[in-house]
């Protein structure tokens, strides 16, 4: 669905994007490179890079990262360099995510970057049975209470929040988008929705919020707007029951009683039959629905993809 790229008066001239080689990073580069000068940082190569995008291939934790800030005036930074991989040793993802974030934010201070956008996730709240239907940004980040592996995600979010208060001279924006899906996305929700016969929890059918990867790229670009500062949930085109999503995609769900499902998934995960850790079951059992009205109001956000198109984008 081609549409005009996001642009506004005061668009920063040079924008660093960390984690640019990922699917979301590439979508963001496509969205931004016609409007501003994009400099990517990623330890992975960036194949099929648009010619006007610069790429610095380096690990975020290395001192050489500073090269990206030298010889040019950097106006803004978008930090996507967060890694999720349940198979990776926790110490490695933790160090990459937490140290990488603190390092890159320090460089922003040192080089006088005026705008910093950090990509977090609505998963920091965590699906919980006692959740209200629309969680505002002030909700405590309780996800690690049930799933300790997400604690680096929460730490990154918290670190960015303290950075926001410590540096009033920098416009820091923290975005917490709902479940990101899309044709190239390989995260847990998209992988789950791609299964031909996904497990579901018998008798549970929570509401879900999904957002298309290109809409997330547009939201990130919109967050560069001058004057915008703070923590924002980013919602897609609405809420829909899990069962309706699976029906729309023509899947054949296999319901498993809730007393058995976690044991089953744990066995399968340990036997490497699935990439889903058992704690992810919470997402198909309980609510984690957020209120996205603040970003809509303060940034003028609205998604481009309809609910149906967003759902269908995973197939």
């Amino acid at each position: 669905m081609p549409s005009a790229p996001i642009t506004f008066p005061g668009m920063p001239g040079t924008v660093i994007v960390t984690g640019i080689s990922g699917n979301l990073g590439r979508a963001l580069a496509k969205e931004l490179h016609t409007e501003t000068h994009v400099v990517g940082i990623d330890r992975r190569p960036f194949p099929e890079k648009p010619r006007d995008v610069d790429h610095v291939q380096v690990d975020l934790r290395k001192n050489r990262v500073e090269e990206a800030f030298r010889h040019r005036r950097v106006d803004a930074l978008i930090h996507l360099g967060i890694m999720h991989d349940p198979r990776m040793p926790f110490s490695e993802t933790h160090s990459f995510n937490v140290l990488g974030t603190s390092k890159i934010l320090d460089l922003c201070v040192r080089h006088g970057v005026r705008k910093v956008v950090v990509l977090s996730s609505a998963n920091v709240y965590g699906p919980r049975p006692e959740n209200s239907s629309f969680l505002p940004e002030e909700t405590p980040l309780m996800a690690a209470d049930r799933f300790s592996d997400v604690r680096d995600l929460i730490e990154v979010d918290m670190y960015a929040q303290s950075f926001l208060w410590r540096h009033p001279e920098i416009e820091t924006v923290i975005l917490r988008p709902v479940n990101i899906v899309g044709p190239t996305v390989r995260n847990a929700p998209s992988n789950y929705l791609r299964l031909e016969s996904p497990l579901t929890v018998l008798g549970f059918d929570p509401m879900l919020q999904l957002i298309h990867e290109e809409d997330v790229a547009r939201a990130l670009a919109l967050a560069l707007k001058p004057g915008l500062r703070g923590v924002f949930n980013v919602t897609g085109p609405g809420e829909v029951p899990l069962s309706a999503v699976l029906r729309e995609l023509g899947r054949h769900p296999v319901p498993v009683p809730h007393l058995l499902v976690r044991g089953l998934v744990r066995r399968a995960f340990e036997a490497r039959l699935t990439s889903f850790p058992p704690e992810e079951v919470d997402h198909i059992q309980y609510l984690c629905i957020v209120d996205g009205s603040r970003f809509a109001r303060e940034a003028g956000w609205s998604p481009k993809y309809t609910l149906r198109d967003t759902i269908r984008s995973v197939s």
Binding site: E130, S132, S133, V201, G203, H258, L287
Partner: peptide, 23 residues
């Protein structure tokens, strides 16, 4: 109630909701 199978879904589709002050 949202931890109860079937009941949780039945309640939600019929418009019932967890009684948090925010809701």
């Amino acid at each position: 109630v949202p931890t109860l199978p079937f009941v949780s879904t039945f309640m939600a589709r019929c418009g019932q909701i967890v009684g948090t002050p925010e809701n």
